[in-house]
Amino acid sequence: MINQAQIILRNEDRLQVMRSYPDKYFDLAIPDFEYGIGEDGESNHSRGGLAEATKFTPKAWDREPPPQEVFDELFRISKHQIIWGGNYFIDKIKKPSAGWIIWDKVNGNTHQSDCELAWTSFDMGARIFRFMWAGMRQGKNIDQGYIMQGNKKMNEKRRHPCQKPRALYRWLYQKFAEKHFRVFDPGFGSGNSAIEAYCFGVAEYVGCEIDEEYYSDAVAELEAAREPLPVFKH
């Protein structure tokens, strides 16, 4: 386990971690659960002809969605939730919401999904975040994510087959978190939710990741993080 200031990363099973916290301990939970569609590194690699593609270690964790108990514990320990892939988990969430988040990947005419959806517990209208994320094509910043930043050497490194960009988590914290919040991520993968929590300055962030390779990579990235994501000027 690493504890860097208010950021706690645990190399443990998510259910074991969740069961150790009292009811409504966290102000916000931001899970990016496995969807059960096989995007776990066997065939999902970063793509693009501008540089050598990243080859991920084949895994087998995305063969089925989480069991109901995971969702029950998540709702027990958190006051608010932003659940990525919520459209895959309607039968387990069991709560209607008008407050969906749409991440528009601005990926053009590729074969990849045009967007990803997140169910939220917030009483609001739907919100759209536009940030280009297709292989080597990445957005400039959270305000100009629909524009590709030109220097590929400045691209965020792809470390996880289902990685979400740091810019997305920065936007989430700015929109839905407060400095006094306690935040929970039950499977942080690349570690980007932890890095941006550190940069944003939440009161406490707790994340767990059972895979030792992902955990070690995320710890290294967090320890190297000193400044927020650069803002690229046009």
Rank of each mutant, 00 (worst) to 15 (best):
A194M: 13
E69I: 11
A220E: 11
A53G: 14
D91N: 03
K95M: 06
I7E: 10
G48P: 06
I142T: 14
A51F: 13
I101H: 01
I82M: 08
L168I: 12
P65S: 10
E116M: 04
D23A: 10
G189Q: 07
D27T: 14
L9N: 08
E156H: 12
K164T: 01
I2Q: 06
R137G: 00
P65C: 01
D91F: 00
Y173P: 04
F176R: 03
R226A: 06
G139L: 13
D211N: 15
Q4M: 05
D114G: 14
D104Q: 03
A220D: 12
P230G: 06
Q6N: 15
V70H: 11
I8N: 10
V231T: 13
E39Q: 13
D185T: 08
F188C: 03
R170L: 11
M132W: 10
E196W: 10
M18W: 08
A60E: 04
C208A: 05
A177D: 01
F122R: 09
E227R: 04
W100Q: 02
D40V: 01
G191A: 05
I82G: 04
M1L: 05
F184A: 09
M124Q: 15
F56L: 06
P31K: 11
I83T: 05
F188A: 02
N155E: 05
S46Q: 15
H160W: 09
V70C: 04
P96R: 09
R137H: 15
E12W: 12
E34T: 13
F188L: 02
Q16N: 13
I142R: 15
N107A: 07
L28N: 10
A134G: 09
R127M: 11
E39L: 14
G99V: 08
V17Q: 01
A118K: 03
F26C: 08
K95I: 10
S43T: 12
E12P: 00
N44Y: 15
R159D: 03
A29S: 14
T120C: 01
D23Y: 07
F131E: 01
D40T: 00
G41V: 01
G86T: 02
M148G: 03
Y25L: 00
P161A: 06
P161H: 07
E227H: 11
A225G: 04
E69Q: 14
D72C: 02
I8L: 07
W103T: 00
A224K: 14
E212S: 14
K152M: 12
V202T: 10
I7W: 12
K175D: 06
C115K: 15
A203S: 13
V17I: 10
